[in-house]
């Protein structure tokens, strides 16, 4: 229970930081508030028993923070978005939909299917219990002692291939935008 309270405090911190990131006029403060959200998320990962995720989150957060700070300090142009009636209406509508979905998901209408309680994910409580099967048979089936890696790179390797393809394509796109050959041609013309 103590850990749950700590996680709730971290979530409150993340909400506050993301509000600051949205509302502040200074782009650098906004970027740093985004970084605070990411680091708090990595602490939550660690508390919830997911060190693989926590390592990846910290490392990616550091690199993306460096990139964003570098980009933001290179150019200082901020355009505050004017608030109008339509924007407020859309925001209120989205908030209302979120509240309604949360109400039904936590069994507010007395329905059957609800979100499982904290610490008991679906894969352990559902009937076949595939999670227990992974834990019991990973060592003999794959030979890896880190079950997360065995799932990511053996049982569900298609998923990893898709993820790698996404990274590859996005990096190709970045190279295509940033290439210098096209710039030189356009500069001469």
């Amino acid at each position: 229970m103590g850990m749950e309270l700590f996680i709730l405090m971290l979530i409150a911190f993340m909400l506050a930081a993301s509000l600051i990131a949205i509302e502040t006029r200074d782009l650098l403060s906004s970027v740093i508030a985004m970084g605070a959200v990411g680091f708090a998320l990595s602490v939550i990962d660690l508390l919830a028993g997911a060190p693989d995720l926590a390592i990846t989150q910290v490392v990616v957060e550091v690199v993306s923070l460096i990139l964003l700070v570098r980009v933001v300090t290179a150019r200082e142009e901020t355009q505050p978005v004017p608030s109008d009636a339509l924007r407020t209406a859309v925001t209120l509508l989205a908030g209302g939909i979120f509240l309604a979905v949360a109400f039904f998901a936590f069994g507010g209408a007395g329905g059957g299917a609800t979100v499982p309680p904290f610490g008991q994910p679906v894969l352990t409580s559902a009937n076949p219990g595939v999670s227990a099967d992974y834990l019991a048979r990973t060592a003999e089936q794959t030979g890896a002692s880190n079950v997360v890696m065995a799932i990511v790179l053996d049982y569900r390797a298609y998923d990893t291939l898709g993820e790698a393809t996404v990274i590859f394509v996005s990096i190709l796109g970045a190279y295509a935008i940033l290439r210098r050959v096209g710039r030189r041609k356009e500069a001469r013309a």
Partner: peptide, 26 residues
């Protein structure tokens, strides 16, 4: 672990090359 370390090695080179290259390009 069979092919798992080999996949890890490939992903290591892929991610490192991609991220560092994009940063250098920027």
């Amino acid at each position: 672990g069979g092919t798992i370390p080999l996949f890890n090695l490939a992903i290591l080179v892929k991610v490192a090359g991609g991220l560092a290259g994009v940063f250098l390009a920027l």
